[in-house]
Amino acid sequence: MRSLVLAVALFLFWLALSGHYTPFLLTVGVLCVALTVFVASRMFIVDDEGQPMELLLAAPTYWAWLYVEIAKSAVTVTRIILDPKLPISPTFTRVRASQKTSAGLATYANSITLTPGTITTGVSDDILTVHAIIREGADDLEAGGMDKRVRQFEGDT
């Protein structure tokens, strides 16, 4: 089932990138997809960690929310950069990630890094080490709003 979804996704990717729909190229595409899926299943990476397709349905709303967060904090960081006084207060902190699956944890850690102003520098079990450019960024993460949102995204399916 996962292999089938992977194959369809890969073939759509091929179609989107190629832009030429002659029988020969389509056949080559099918062969390439088959080879890739074969190699992937030989490597045992077609599982719920390597290909979290359950999250696909919940993803668009989460991404939209994440985009808004990114925009907000990017504006904050830009203000800091363009401020003549450069009012930074770099802070290191540790936060707990309450996600159950590894895909959820990776989503949370990557979302923290993707948001300008905070970077995940380390993961040990379920504690993330985070570097924030201002104190308020660290405070926001400790309050746990994003953690809750990711858990909701993970449990949506």
Partner: peptide, 14 residues
């Protein structure tokens, strides 16, 4: 890192 505040040693609640 240049730090204004280091909270790495803090207890993580929750």
């Amino acid at each position: 890192p240049l730090l204004a505040e280091d909270r790495r040693g803090r207890d993580v609640p929750g």
